[in-house]
Design a protein around this nucleic acid. Structure first.
Lengths: 220, 220
DNA sequence: TGTACATCAGTGAACGCGCGTTCACTGATGTAC
DNA sequence: TGTACATCAGTGAACGCGCGTTCACTGATGTAC
């Protein structure tokens, strides 16, 4: 009875639209309540103004919906990171941009972020092909590029990327949990993490005394 | 009906014993299921072989029990850290021992650890005096001691301790969630974190060529 | 252009379940006399 | 030393609730003729 709206029935051939509404509602509920268990079929139905059994046209059960929300979130994270990485030309700036995008992804929907990584242990017996660990691969790639370009002296990019990821994950989960804590600005903490763990160094080989007039015009 | 055991009724004056059994059962359920919502009065009752309403002699409602479990866990963490810190004479070794104890506390009951810090946001309107942030104060103290003793060059111990805490928290939550991930040894990652973020340095001022016979006897 | 009808996109009622909580109670244990 | 009785430490049945899921159904929409 207490529905959000008297939803208009989809037209013929457009029934699949409801599936994405269901996922969006599940996403919203997960974020609002902070609890995976609050994502119930009845709550989803109330949220979008349908009857609960209508959901079964699109998903076989509740578990599949939560799984789909989490899977979608991992894909979204992957795209967000790729976009951030591709926006910077210099390797270290690229690494930093990727890390910042990671933190922003977490900050935007902290509850969803937490559930993304907390779910694994519950569902342990299901050996997924793990596209979930993807963000780590991007991070290793970005750090390795820094090493290749001579702006990082890391001699164990995988190990160092692990430490960086751990710190990013810690920030993404702890920062929203402790709003009363005297947090420094996000970028301040990020720079502390990177300067401590990425082994950043200025490229020193060229040894040109001073940059001459650049190839590009000074203005524009 | 499916009780763990036909529990013996407590003798007169010993009724309060049940209270600690209830907390222990709640603790166990939280860790086993990984879900705060699975800590139900009926599950607790089944676990220790009593009737569910018996719980009301000791706790006014379900929420209070979960709260007590979390509060107890914070106190336990505090003691664990203090013990670890007091076991080492040198400031940097003390800092490291505290951080390692923190990681071990998380590793021992990862689900409880996660819930400890995830609960805050749900209960936001309740402004606790926050003994919860205690572990951070110990961390700041340990790092400050390193600076005073000349074995850390940190010029912002609070900010650096924040970065270290974030990394420890990230490890404590991510490590149990991704058992398939190629984790380096815990101490390897810890040392990477500390060497990157604690600004550790050997004490250089004294410049004694070689330590003379110590004040204490060599053997006890 | 009109109409019968198949199909699509849902609905409403009902099931059995586990839950938090309330209530009146019970029976062993200790104590006053 | 014996016994009535108060108290302690619980119990069993029941309530109303929200849940996942099943089932038989409905009514608008488009299509074949």
């Amino acid at each position: 009875m207490p529905r959000t709206a008297a939803r208009q029935r989809n037209r013929r051939g457009e029934g699949a639209k409801l599936a994405s509404d269901i996922l969006a509602a599940a996403n919203a509920l997960l974020e609002e309540t902070g609890s995976e268990d609050a994502v119930t079929l009845r709550a989803i139905a109330r949220h979008i103004g349908i009857a609960a059994p209508s959901i079964y046209e699109h998903f076989p059960d509740r578990e599949t919906i939560v799984e789909a929300v989490v899977d979608t979130a991992f894909v979204e994270l992957h795209h967000t990171l790729q976009e951030a990485l591709s926006g910077e030309p210099e390797p270290f700036a690229r690494l930093r941009a990727g890390c910042l995008a990671y933190l922003q992804f977490g900050a935007e929907r902290p509850n969803r972020y937490r559930v993304m990584f907390a779910r694994h242990q519950h569902i342990a017996p299901n050996p997924r092909p793990s596209p979930r660990v993807d963000p780590f691969e991007l991070l290793v790639g970005a750090l390795t590029d820094c090493v290749k370009a001579g702006v990082s002296t890391s001699n164990d990019p995988v190990g160092d990327a692990t430490a960086i990821w751990v710190a990013l994950h810690g920030y993404a989960t702890l920062h929203p949990s402790l709003p009363g804590f005297p947090w420094p600005a996000t970028e301040t903490t990020l720079d502390r993490i990177l300067s401590g763990l990425a082994h950043h160094t200025e490229k020193t080989r060229p040894r040109t005394r001073r940059p001459r007039a650049k190839t590009r015009d000074a203005k524009r």
